[in-house]
Amino acid sequence: MIRFDNVSKTYAGGFDALSDITLHVAPGEFVFLTGHSGAGKSSLLKLVALVERATRGRLVVDGRDLGRLGRRGVPEHRRQIGFIFQDHRLLMDRTVFDNVALPLVVAGHPAAETARRVRAALDKVGLLHKERAAPRTLSSGEQQRVGIARAVVNRPKVLLADEPTGNLDPALGRDILQLFAQFNAIGVTVLIATHDLALLEQVPHRRVTLHAGRVEAGA
């Protein structure tokens, strides 16, 4: 589903955030991406979501060679991917419903279908009763779950999460992990970047460790 072949990422300024990454993630797999802060975890996820482009090497996601994808192809690619951020990046002046609806709205789905799918996603994360609420009024665990609902509302084949439990206490972190496991159980490929070791201890999934921009273990 995700295939890195000798991929490198050099940021403007000449810093090599990722060097010669070769990594395959099979469809339906659940992978933890670990490593110290600055190891390149976020950069790797950004390459998959085409937030950044690889400097060298070949990156294929769901059969699409991202190096060959032009600027116009980027939105369509992102619609196939759900991205979850540590700081959730909710729009604070919109309701929970509108936040979750955003991926469907930008893709131009009909209102009725959008409403149905948004409620299904909110139901999945246990926040159906909060659809009219302002994100500000929610707890941080709830905010993160709204972020997850937004990431899955488009039914992506791939879920990427960057430190999704970074701001949460362990019990809430476990709940979030449970959610990812449920999506994985219905076939979604899940890639979670985290340095939350307590989280990693709980589940037996594959672990890929980055160190200074290189794959150290788990490739």
Partner: peptide, 12 residues
């Protein structure tokens, strides 16, 4: 912020 999030969600 809103524009960035919309683009991450696949806005053209």
């Amino acid at each position: 912020d809103e524009i960035e999030v919309a683009k991450l969600c696949g806005a053209t």
